[in-house]
Design a protein around this nucleic acid. Structure first.
Length: 847
RNA sequence: GCCCGCAUGGUGGAAUCGGUAGACACAACAGACUUAAAAUCUGUCGAUCGUAAGGUCGUGCCAGUUCGAGUCUGGCUGCGGGCACCA
């Protein structure tokens, strides 16, 4: 076998990677005559191994980067590490390793895995967010936010493990218990730092309309997350007390249908009552054992306890309502108190039925009989049993009620948002220290800028629970920058979403001694194409949108939206397997015998399960290194791109990667052979030349559109279609047509399989690198057809087809269609009622 | 519980604006080459009736709009993502 017969990726791939690096093909220049293009994939958490989900994410970005490079853009395509986070601390506890050591070792091994895939990254811009040179700037940004009134401190609820005396992440609460101690968690108040994202709620909502390049579902999810609602605050005087209970409602129109008020278990009144009332205290304790996760709270059975307290109806002094403490009322939303109208709200209805509270109908839909005792009616209608609101529509009633509430001084119209301010305090070591000092005399004192960075101490221990920064013997003890008296650092670190909210700005000028250079950000931002998982649809993307607004307020930049276009990719899945004992087993522990899988070790039968997201727990992870070794980067890349569209899940299969590998060899063999054929001075026929040129230009034209829309799987299919046709006829082409067609074909494949195409380009005797070649352009002269095929239907059913000139007269088409034998046969002697002609597409005869 | 998606042959998917359902592949089957296997090449490949021409059914389920629905509307079912301290 000669070298040209089989493609040797083990030699080729490293060779061209070295060449690209040597010639600095992918270094982004901070100024250029070319238009700029910033393509970014969500930077990875350095968990230790590159998995297939990473490879898919980065291949998507890489194909775009290479395509845009060829199209003549100045491309920025960077890579870095989202390196702070909980897993590093867990590893530290388990293996007695420093989180920093663990993290940097992981980064090194992941970088080593990533390089052989041949991504067109500008590696000179790489950084890890746990580098002091990254987080020192983050501290500066925090201080600027502080100075610009975007930071404040307030008490909020956390999950507390009473045995370990530690704050737990939601993930660390399993069935209401601490994951290590097994102790039931408690909700506990803790003073925490918050960013005022709600200052921008309306703007974050309004600007979503401008994000035309975002998937609609992500926009909808953000809209719902921000959750603007118009309603009213209403004061209910508490009977026998001087205070009143303030509630928020979106349905002031139903105020005359009120039958109870409910407050959160964490409402001040509830907590006060708990001090003297043991049954209330135990109910609150039970509610608190649910932890802080909204999901758990809302899934739990709706329960309440009567406080014994009564409120007066704001519009009728003789009407009293009970106050309940209810487990579904959240302290974080509105005022932590609601009024219940069971007839017109499902949750209130459920609650009222359970505690035998009155259900009073106040809305009557027109021309419909309803029974609110059995089911809440939430639709539109006219107000009844409601004093001055009677006869009004829901919308009119809302306005009328708001007006009266305001006049009587017992309420006011208000707009609220579901969005809450962003709590950024974490009681953990492996994060960016919050640069604040507490002084007994001066209070809260920000760390002076010249004292930055506040560096994480290296000498920490993880032998006891809680925050090592808090335990550290010396770190937190400092002198107050104002009065020089004894003071303490805040030992909380920032939420890791903080790092990922501005890293895309840092990539524009990663070596700057400021957070970023204004000019560089001005030039590169916004990110033209951002790519990552749908799981980040709300939080990360919303925080980043908030950050640019906050930075704008601080004078750092002058735009609001960081990501012009967004692509959300699906997961990488694999079949799952279980052995005869029902234990998960991995794909490399099994083998195929007579169409069924058995365990390699003992030939026992294996149960094949459905395809699921690759995860360690289900043992269906395919190692990227193994694929690199067996099939190489191009094959892995091609498989990633050719099967599923980017936003859907991709199922990794052994057969699939093998098929792609075979195809790479077919490309190799074909191009090499055809190239030889060029030199045999082939004599082509004009007909075949024209036909292949037509197909070639059509392929270039529609292929370019596919790439622009990120329809990579269709793009690959189109290339194969062209290849199939080309391979059939290449021996009948003239040498010049064969040559250009081959070159264009190789070039079109380049963004997806860059190594083999670079090698073929070289084999074809081209002097420069293929990555330097401009993207091919389609000649419109080849794109038009003179005649087209039209389909003929009778009553919407396919009955035949006809070939006519482009834009043929509809009357002519009708005649030809009616004359078709199959149409004649179906019609028999029936009358034509109507004929619909859709130009150049279809004829439908209605009989 | 709430919010957001998705569902097309044995499998992954294609169908640009409501206009030929199944492009391009994978698997399978048959054949060629081979001592044999692999590789490669050729052919078949939604179901069903029919010798064929051709017909009927078919895009998770039930309705609806339309000359025409995978695509639009309403109602379900199943699966997935998110729910604020996993990243």
């Amino acid at each position: 076998m000669t070298i040209t017969e089989r493609y040797n990726f083990r030699q080729t791939e490293p060779k061209w990677q070295a060449e690209w690096e040597k010639r600095e093909c992918f270094l982004a220049k901070d100024s250029s005559d070319k238009p700029k293009y910033y393509v970014l994939e969500m930077f990875p958490y350095p968990s230790g191994r590159i998995h297939m989900g990473h490879i898919r994410n980065y291949t998507l970005g890489d194909v775009i980067a290479r395509f845009k490079l060829a199209q003549g853009y100045n491309v920025l395509h960077p890579m870095g590490w989202d390196a702070f986070g909980l897993p590093a601390e867990n590893a530290a506890i388990q293996n007695n390793l420093h989180p920093g050591k663990w993290t940097y070792e992981n980064i090194a091994s992941m970088r080593k895995q990533l390089k052989p895939v041949g991504f067109a990254y500008d590696w000179s811009r790489e950084f890890a967010s746990c580098d002091v040179n990254y987080y020192r700037h983050e501290q500066k940004l925090f201080l600027d936010f502080f100075a610009n009134d975007l930071v404040y401190e307030k008490e909020s609820l956390v999950n507390w493990d009473p045995v370990e005396n530690t704050v737990l992440a939601n993930e660390q609460v399993v069935d209401g218990k601490g994951w290590r101690s097994g102790a039931p968690v408690e909700r506990r108040r803790l003073s925490q730092w918050f960013l005022k994202i709600t200052d921008f709620a309306q703007d974050l909502l309004d600007s979503l309309d401008t994000l035309k390049g975002w998937p609609e579902r992500v926009v909808t999810m953000q809209q719902n997350w921000i959750g603007r609602s118009e309603g009213a605050y209403v004061h209910f005087p508490v009977v026998g007390r001087s205070e009143s209970l303030e509630i928020f409602t979106t349905r002031p129109d139903t105020l005359f249908g009120a039958s109870f008020c409910a407050i959160s278990p964490n409402h001040p009144i509830a907590e006060e009552l708990a001090k003297t009332n043991p049954s209330i205290a135990s109910f609150i304790k039970e509610c608190n054992s649910l932890g802080t996760s909204l999901e758990d709270i809302e899934k739990a059975e709706k329960r309440g306890v009567d406080t014994g307290l009564k409120v007066q109806h704001p519009l009728d002094a003789n009407w009293q309502l009970p106050i309940y403490i209810a487990n579904f009322v959240l302290m974080d939303y509105g005022t932590g108190a609601i009024f219940g109208c069971p007839a017109h709200d499902e949750r209130d209805h459920e609650f009222a039925t359970k505690y035998k509270l009155p259900i009073k109908q106040v809305i009557q839909p027109e021309g419909e009989v309803i029974d609110v005792s059995s089911q809440a009616f939430t639709g539109d209608g006219l107000l009844v049993n409601s004093d001055f609101l009677n006869g009004l529509s829901v919308e009119q009633a809302k306005q009328a009620m708001n007006k009266v509430l305001e006049e009587k001084g017992c309420g006011r119209k208000a707009i609220t948002y579901r969005l809450r301010d962003w709590g950024v305090s974490r009681q953990r070591y492996w994060g960016c220290p919050i640069p604040i000092i507490r002084c007994a005399d001066c209070g809260v004192v920000p760390v002076p800028e010249e004292d930055l960075p506040v560096v994480l101490p290296e000498d920490v221990t993880f032998d006891k629970p809680g925050n090592p920064l808090d335990h550290h013997p010396t770190w937190k003890h400092v002198n107050c920058p104002k009065c020089d008296g004894k003071a303490e650092r805040v030992t909380d670190t920032l939420d890791t979403f903080f790092e990922s909210s501005w890293y895309f700005l840092r990539f524009c000028s990663p070596h700057s001694d400021k957070p970023f250079e204004k000019e560089a950000v001005q030039y590169w931002m916004p990110v033209d194409q951002y790519i990552g998982g749908i799981e980040h649809a709300v939080m990360h993307l919303l925080y980043s949108r908030f950050f640019t607004r906050a930075l704008r307020k601080c004078g750092y930049l002058n735009f609001d939206e960081p990501f012009k276009q967004l692509m959300t990719q699906g997961m990488v899945c694999h079949e799952t397997y279980k052995d005869s004992k029902g234990q998960w087993i991995s794909p490399d522990e099994i083998k195929k015998v007579d169409c069924a899988f058995v365990k390699s070790s003992d030939n026992s039968p294996v149960v094949v399960g459905r395809s699921e997201k690759m995860s360690k727990s289900k043992k269906n992870v395919i190692d990227s290194d193994e694929m690199m070794q067996s099939y190489g980067a191009d094959a892995t890349r091609l498989f990633m791109m050719s099967d599923s569209p980017p936003d859907r899940d991709l199922e990794w299969t052994d057969m699939g990667i093998q098929g792609v590998w075979k195809y790479l060899n077919r490309i190799w063999k074909f191009v090499v052979e055809a190239e030889h054929y060029c030199n045999k001075s082939a004599q082509g026929s004009g007909d075949k030349d024209q036909a292949i040129l037509k197909l070639l230009h059509k392929t270039v034209s529609s292929g370019t559109v596919d790439l622009e829309k990120f329809h990579f799987n269709k793009y690959v299919a189109r290339m194969r279609e062209f290849h199939n046709e080309f391979e059939k006829h290449y021996k009948n082409l003239s040498a010049p047509v064969l040559k250009t067609s081959l070159q264009t074909f190789v070039q079109l494949l380049n963004p997806i399989i860059p190594h083999i195409t670079e090698e073929l380009w070289h084999e074809m005797g081209m002097k420069d690198l293929l990555v330097h070649e401009p993207w091919p352009k389609a000649d419109s002269a080849y794109l038009k057809d003179d005649t087209i095929e039209m389909v003929v239907q009778v009553n919407g059913k396919l009955r035949g087809s006809l070939e006519v000139a482009l834009d043929e007269d509809p009357e002519v088409i009708k005649k030809i269609a009616l004359a078709l034998p199959n149409v004649q046969r179906i019609m028999e002697d029936k009358q034509v009622r109507k004929i619909i002609v859709v130009p150049n597409k279809i004829v439908n005869i209605v009989i």
